[in-house]
Amino acid sequence: MEKSKEWPLWEVFIRSKQGLNHKHVGSLRASDATMAIKNARDVYTRRSEGISIWVVPSNNITASDPNNEDSLFEPAQSKVYRHPTFYDVPDGISHM
């Protein structure tokens, strides 16, 4: 089969219940978005795992480069004052 005719790849995101966010669960191939939703229903929600499905063409996702992990995420590591545990709270104060 010619390469160009292969169905595109889609990433599937499922909301498991009202009040929770959609979460990536896997991927599948489908000819278009409608089929991707139908296939996602059949493959990823056979046991009531979800009440809402998002599908996104995989090639539309831009990902950060794991090789830049250090420079990208390091600044957060060194700013401990962003966490409440950085601060001393005097005795006698129970909730803050």
Partner: peptide, 8 residues
């Protein structure tokens, strides 16, 4: 497979 792709 081909028909679905052509349709899309």
């Amino acid at each position: 497979v081909e028909a679905a792709m052509a349709f899309a």
